[in-house]
Computed example of a mutant assay.
Amino acid sequence: MQLKSLFSAALFARGLFAAPAAGQTVLRFGCSQIVVERLDPLVNPDQNPSPHVHQVVGGNAFAPEVPSTDVSGLANCTTCSFSEDFSNYWTANMYFKALNGTYKRVPQIPNRGNTGESGGMTVYYTSPYDGSKVTAFKPGFRMLAGDSAQRTNGGITKWNAICFRCYTAKNFGGDNDAPCSDKTVDSVTLPSKPCPGGMRTTIRFPTCWDGTNLDSADHSSHVSYPETGTFETSGPCPSTHPVKLPQLMFEVVWDTSSFNDKSQWPADGSQPFILSMGDGTGYGQHGDYIFGWKGNVLQTAMESACFGATCKALKTQAFTDANKCAVPVTVKEDVTDGWLTTLPGMAN
């Protein structure tokens, strides 16, 4: 069996995809963190610092403001394994809140099957199961998944959009790796029990585009989830957003093992983890995206039936090179190391 078929069969066995058709593309690759700080050029481009901390991966064009232009012309390096991807991807950070009210950042770690990253996340671009075509994002495109202010169920946190998984074993051993696939192990809220193998967030972005606007005031109205069904099963796009995009998905894994001592958890049994915008529910988890692939290479890849972190249509780099990519730290505050009396940007 060829490597592609073996990889596809493994994903199918784990429940991540249905049996793939000829022509389906599944790009899955790691990106190291490029910076951790309070900046958000999508939602808060006029604020330095922005309200809460993010971990950012991708190209070194990331800054307090990123012009709405071809980002691949602004960046000259990337922390992603595909060296022509200068996009930026970012999510909220997670902190542990101790019984004395202090906070410590939970480190992000590489996902299963990725090697060499420094923190960061795993990024997916996929086409539908049936191999139908998608239109790659255009220069200047950007979007948001989730709502940092949300604290109750509903909206994008409907099943399969954003979820958390509690890994039961070190190195994810024995754990199914499919995103938001099993309500016995996945939830749209932060897990309420210790996670020996770490905790994962899966964030799936909208897959239908209005075909005109590269952004919108809320960074969401120009895109949509399928009208019915799911992207993976070729659910139709609404008439207002007729252009089918690749499914962009983040997988973020936190190493919670240092915080699994239940004696350090709240006496009332509530969970002690809190996202960087002060959210202890998990409903406010979100992901931000600024497109920055070079030229037409993403469209070519989506039409080349590529699988995994290798693709003949794309150039790759080792993480020894990717991890050299950096941006200057703009916000001078401690957000990553040691114990903090308050969450950065939050009153308490």
Rank of each mutant, 00 (worst) to 15 (best):
R38A: 04
R38T: 03
L39F: 13
L39S: 14
D40W: 00
P41W: 01
P41V: 03
P41E: 02
L42I: 15
L42D: 11
L42N: 11
V43M: 03
V43Y: 08
V43G: 09
V43P: 06
V43T: 07
N44A: 07
N44R: 15
P45Y: 05
P45G: 04
P45F: 07
P45D: 07
P45C: 12
Q47K: 11
Q47P: 11
Q47E: 05
Q47D: 12
N48V: 14
N48M: 04
P49I: 08
P49D: 08
P49W: 09
P49F: 08
S50A: 10
S50L: 06
P51V: 04
P51N: 03
P51C: 03
P51H: 06
P51S: 06
H52A: 07
H52E: 03
V53N: 05
H54V: 00
H54K: 01
H54N: 03
H54M: 01
Q55C: 13
Q55T: 05
V56S: 00
V56C: 02
V57F: 00
V57H: 02
V57R: 00
G58S: 02
G58L: 02
G58T: 00
G58W: 00
G59C: 00
G59E: 01
G59F: 00
N60P: 08
N60T: 04
N60C: 07
N60I: 08
A61R: 11
F62G: 06
F62T: 09
F62N: 05
F62H: 13
F62W: 07
P64M: 15
P64N: 13
P64T: 08
P64C: 15
E65H: 12
E65L: 15
E65C: 11
E65I: 10
E65S: 12
V66L: 06
P67T: 14
P67Y: 14
P67E: 05
S68F: 15
S68W: 07
S68D: 14
S68C: 08
T69V: 13
T69N: 14
D70K: 10
D70G: 10
V71E: 11
S72E: 06
G73H: 09
L74G: 02
L74A: 11
L74C: 12
A75G: 09
A75R: 11
N76L: 00
N76H: 05
N76W: 01
N76C: 02
N76G: 01
C77I: 01
T79M: 03
C80E: 06
C80Y: 03
C80H: 02
C80V: 03
S81C: 04
F82K: 05
E84P: 02
E84R: 06
F86A: 12
F86G: 03
F86D: 09
F86M: 06
F86I: 07
S87H: 04
N88C: 08
Y89C: 12
Y89R: 07
Y89G: 15
Y89S: 09
Y89V: 15
W90T: 01
W90V: 03
T91S: 09
A92N: 07
A92Q: 12
A92W: 10
N93K: 11
N93I: 04
M94P: 10
M94S: 11
M94A: 12
Y95K: 10
Y95P: 01
K97I: 10
K97G: 04
A98Y: 09
A98N: 15
A98M: 12
A98G: 12
L99N: 05
L99R: 15
L99G: 12
L99K: 12
